[in-house]
Computed example of a mutant assay.
Amino acid sequence: MTRFTPFDASEFLDSEDAIAAYLAAALEDPDPGLFVAALGDVAKARGMTEIAREAGLGRESLYKALTPGSKLRYETVRKVMDVLGVKLTVSSG
């Protein structure tokens, strides 16, 4: 019998380019929960405790905020993205 382990994207987010491509791809999906989950994967790859501390958030609060289905506030997204060193950009279609 073949056994599978759960896929964990955070294990593959080991460079700035990989992180940027991952978040950009997540933003292309119309489901905002996908972006929230992707942001959580990136925070996990970088160290959730460290990200929470630098963003001025509690670790548990950050985990809850980055759970798909959460009502994530833009302010929180901005703080986390600033700490991660990534930014959202807008371009015409």
Rank of each mutant, 00 (worst) to 15 (best):
45 A>R: 04
43 A>C: 12
48 M>L: 14
13 L>T: 11
40 G>D: 04
26 A>M: 10
84 L>D: 02
69 G>R: 01
60 E>G: 13
12 F>D: 14
63 Y>R: 13
83 V>D: 05
11 E>N: 11
37 A>S: 13
88 L>M: 06
63 Y>W: 08
85 G>K: 05
26 A>E: 08
57 L>G: 07
12 F>A: 13
81 M>D: 03
25 A>M: 09
69 G>S: 04
78 R>T: 02
82 D>F: 00
34 L>A: 07
51 I>R: 07
47 G>M: 03
1 M>I: 11
28 E>S: 14
92 S>Q: 15
23 L>A: 06
83 V>M: 04
77 V>P: 00
35 F>V: 07
84 L>Y: 05
87 K>F: 08
70 S>F: 03
6 P>I: 09
65 A>F: 00
59 R>I: 11
71 K>A: 11
47 G>S: 08
84 L>C: 07
11 E>C: 09
45 A>S: 12
43 A>Q: 01
73 R>L: 10
67 T>A: 13
52 A>W: 02
34 L>K: 13
48 M>A: 10
85 G>M: 00
61 S>P: 09
24 A>Y: 09
49 T>W: 01
81 M>F: 02
42 V>Q: 05
32 P>H: 10
5 T>W: 15
64 K>T: 08
72 L>G: 02
91 S>H: 06
40 G>M: 05
38 A>K: 10
69 G>L: 05
42 V>E: 03
59 R>T: 11
25 A>R: 03
84 L>V: 04
35 F>T: 06
26 A>V: 02
78 R>C: 02
89 T>N: 10
11 E>L: 14
49 T>C: 08
24 A>C: 08
37 A>Q: 05
81 M>V: 04
58 G>M: 07
34 L>D: 13
68 P>K: 06
36 V>E: 12
88 L>S: 07
29 D>W: 00
6 P>W: 13
20 A>M: 11
10 S>L: 10
18 A>F: 02
23 L>T: 01
52 A>S: 07
64 K>L: 12
86 V>Q: 05
86 V>S: 06
76 T>Y: 02
43 A>E: 01
32 P>L: 09
56 G>Y: 05
29 D>M: 07
85 G>F: 09
9 A>I: 03
18 A>T: 14
73 R>G: 05
10 S>A: 15
64 K>S: 11
87 K>M: 03
4 F>L: 15
22 Y>G: 03
43 A>K: 01
70 S>E: 06
72 L>W: 02
17 D>R: 15
38 A>M: 04
76 T>W: 01
57 L>C: 06
22 Y>D: 01
21 A>D: 11
53 R>A: 10
83 V>C: 09
42 V>P: 08
76 T>M: 01
30 P>M: 03
1 M>R: 13
91 S>Y: 04
61 S>V: 10
83 V>P: 09
64 K>I: 01
7 F>A: 12
88 L>Q: 10
73 R>E: 11
14 D>R: 15
2 T>N: 14
41 D>S: 06
81 M>Q: 04
51 I>T: 12
37 A>H: 09
39 L>D: 04
3 R>F: 12
82 D>E: 12
3 R>Y: 11
26 A>P: 10
40 G>H: 05
23 L>E: 08
89 T>C: 04
10 S>E: 14
44 K>N: 13
